[in-house]
């Protein structure tokens, strides 16, 4: 199709130039054009949180964000949270240790939200963690273990 636009994205510290239609979401740009499939599509309508990424350090839903909107802004996905082969991010380690997932599909979004939840200062109590992690649905029902993992990771990160 002819109405493609060229955009420059910075994903996980790397520059990417992409020719896409303006209507392509950040989520589809990541998954279908950049082979960064760690960010998940669960509902494509901003309801489940599986597509959560960081833009300029803030958590956003990549399914409700057009790729063209993040030109010139720093995007971090689950693949960029820790370097391959390097030590895991404390939130990732805590998720593994506390079995804070089963099928794993909501997990990248949960982890990206958890990092933000802690950075935002919303991991002060279990109830606060529950509230600020409620934008990310987990149908396997790992919630109690997610709360444990966020609580533990917050200690490590502080």
């Amino acid at each position: 199709m002819s109405n493609q636009t060229t955009i420059n994205l910075e994903i996980n510290g790397q520059a990417h130039t992409l020719a896409v239609e303006p209507r392509v979401t950040l989520l589809d740009a990541l998954r279908d054009h950049l082979e960064l499939t760690g960010t998940k599509k669960g509902c494509d309508q901003g309801q489940c949180g599986a597509c959560t990424v960081h833009v300029d350090g803030e958590r956003v839903l990549s399914c409700l964000t057009l790729a063209v909107q993040v030109e010139g802004r720093a995007v971090t996905t689950i693949e960029g949270l820790s370097d391959p082969g390097a030590e895991l991010h404390p939130v990732q380690s805590a998720f593994l240790e506390h079995d804070a997932f089963q099928c794993g599909y909501c997990t990248p979004g949960q982890i990206m939200s958890a990092v933000s939840c802690i950075r935002e200062g919303h991991a002060g109590s279990d109830d606060e963690i529950r509230e600020y992690m409620s934008g990310n649905l987990c149908r396997c029902g790992a919630y109690p273990h997610i709360v444990e993992a966020v609580r533990e990771a917050a200690k490590v990160m502080s």
Partner: peptide
């Protein structure tokens, strides 16, 4: 034992069926 497929799932490396191109 922590689940052995865990590291793939927490790093985004797990390749779900529809993520092939």
């Amino acid at each position: 034992l922590a689940r052995i497929d865990g590291p793939a799932k927490i790093t985004g490396a797990a390749d779900y069926a529809m993520e092939h191109s």
